[in-house]
Design a protein around this nucleic acid. Structure first.
Length: 340
DNA sequence: AAGCTCCTCAACCGCAGCGTT
DNA sequence: AAACGCTGCGGTTGAGGAGCT
């Protein structure tokens, strides 16, 4: 490996000796980390950032860290530095190595494309989604499916698709769309239906099942569902949780910048963009589980307001702001949110 | 024990963006 | 405006260790 600047400066390259590490630590202790000179500056900087900094967490990644990496990667892609900001004590290099050596393989073993987090299988030929057992079993519903991570599209891309692809033309999306109801009118909700999802999660409040339909799809790969004016506890943050119908798996969506509102507000609105693998993994049915902050007894109101008017410009600007905040690392996955 | 393969991860490369001259 | 240097990032490499035959 020829490091250009090293070759020019005729400085040492290769693995670092303990003595050099000591020297570097000593130098930084005395002079700070803004003066790189003797060894190649670039190499020193890297050594410090990736290995010597005192606040670095060593050792293997925890299950929680792994989950965070997968979840953030789903949103940001290979932006390792951004991902690492959500893992205190971990470096971008470390996260990248862990992804390449471990997580990638795990996802592939689950039949998921590590780049898109979608199913690798090309058997996606949804034309009509009926609530019958054949259709449901075709998409895994009612069977024992492996726990499926939910895939959330990067919000900006979602909007690009919504606004610019022909796929949504039939929904009238290219014209001025006064409300989201025009693109997902048939969220069938039966207010009397009993929830059948996992209610064991603390604070979970069930809402009636609804049925995914092709009309709810905003592109070949995405579904859209929305909510409006959901009652929120004044003192808590509203967050939303998708739970597989039947309770086979649960994946928090808190961080997906899909939830909205809530501090100091009584009501929240927003929408959720879901990738196709939810369709596949969870079958035709899903249940929205309003996890925390919602007041008991408000489930019907939440259900009834799925398909009501939302201002797209407002949502887009909220998305942009949320993404910027999220990418800057100033917002953790747990509290990413915005006011509507 | 030797040889081989596979895996991990520290380190390097090349590029882009930014500030300074 | 152009040249230059610095910094930060994502992709890639390869040394060394573990495991297997």
């Amino acid at each position: 490996m020829g490091h250009l600047c090293c070759a020019k400066q005729k400085v040492k390259r290769g693995l670092w000796s303990p003595e050099e590490d000591e020297k570097l630590i000593d130098h930084i202790t005395k002079h700070g980390h803004s003066c790189w000179s003797t060894r190649c500056g670039k190499s020193c900087r890297l050594r410090w950032i990736n290995y010597l900094k005192p606040d670095l967490k060593r050792g293997s990644f925890s299950a929680e860290e792994e989950r965070i990496i997968i979840d953030v990667h789903r949103i940001l892609g290979n932006r390792w530095a951004q991902i690492a900001k959500h893992l205190p004590g971990r470096t971008d290099n470390e996260v990248k190595n862990f992804w390449n050596s471990c997580i990638k393989k795990k996802l592939m073993a689950q039949g998921l494309d590590p780049k898109t987090h979608n199913l690798l299988s090309s058997s996606r030929s949804v034309t009509t989604m009926n609530n019958n057992s054949d259709e449901l079993s075709r998409f895994g519903y009612g069977q024992s499916v492996h726990p499926a991570p939910f895939t959330i599209s990067p919000p900006i891309k979602s909007f690009d698709k919504m606004k610019h692809t022909g796929t949504v033309d039939h929904c009238g999306f290219n014209s001025v769309v006064p409300n989201l109801e025009t693109i997902w009118p048939p969220l069938i909700a039966n207010s009397n239906a009993l929830p059948s999802h996992d209610q064991s999660a603390e604070g979970a409040i069930p809402v009636p099942n609804f049925q995914w339909q092709q009309d709810n799809m905003i592109s070949d790969h995405q579904l859209l569902m929305g909510f409006k004016d959901q009652m929120i506890d004044n003192n808590s943050q509203g967050s939303f949780d998708f739970t597989a119908n039947g309770g086979s798996s649960s994946s928090s969506l808190d961080y997906t910048n899909v939830s909205s509102s809530c501090f100091g507000h009584q009501q929240a609105s927003g929408f959720i963009c879901l990738d196709e693998n939810i369709w596949h993994e969870e079958g035709a049915m899903g249940a929205l589980n309003l996890k925390q902050g919602l007041q008991q007894g408000q489930a019907h109101q939440a259900e009834a307001s799925y398909a009501t008017t939302l201002d797209l410009d407002m949502i887009e600007s909220a998305f942009l702001a949320a993404e910027a905040e999220f990418c800057s690392g100033t917002t953790s996955m747990e509290n990413l949110q915005w006011d509507c």
